[in-house]
């Protein structure tokens, strides 16, 4: 069995981390949750993560700045952006800067799990979790 994917989840709203952490763990990932982008970046300097799931609008450092930091220090990490302020221009900007995927809040946990499975495949570590294994398990 391959090593589980390491995921860092960054969102300044505590409820997001609280809800998404178990949802992502369900597909076998190891998840660390952060609400402060500065602390998240410090953690990423200590440890390399396979996937970063980050909000865009945050105090202190926004998601695009976090993305920039990750690309310089850990180019292998796949970055998934989640935002409640999705607009076409922002989506294009994020995509142009190299995010792996972009999703608007609110979304179903299953939507994020599908993106993580896609990212795992792109990382060369495909995860074997057919959709029906975890569908409809979340509110």
């Amino acid at each position: 069995m391959s090593k589980p994917l390491e995921v860092l989840l960054l969102d300044d709203e505590p409820i997001v981390g609280k809800r998404l952490k178990p949802a992502i763990e369900k597909i076998g990932c190891v998840v660390e949750v952060f609400e402060d982008p500065i602390k998240a970046v410090e953690r990423m300097d200590q440890k390399s993560f396979d996937i970063l799931v980050t909000d865009i609008r945050m105090e202190g450092m926004d998601g695009l700045q976090v993305l920039d930091h990750v690309q310089k220090n850990s180019p292998r990490t796949k970055v998934i952006m989640i935002t409640g302020y999705a607009k076409m221009d922002l989506a294009r900007e994020a995509m142009g800067q190299g995010v792996f995927d972009f999703i608007a809040k609110p979304f179903r946990p299953d939507d994020l799990r599908k993106i993580i499975l896609k990212a795992a495949k792109a990382l060369g570590v495909p995860m074997d979790f057919p959709s029906q294994d975890y569908e409809s398990t979340e509110p």
Binding site: A91, F102, I103, K114
Partner: peptide, 14 residues
């Protein structure tokens, strides 16, 4: 082929 125009979950939903 520019990255800005690539498909993403958000744009498919739109």
């Amino acid at each position: 082929a520019f990255r800005k125009f690539q498909v993403m979950t958000y744009s498919i939903k739109c």
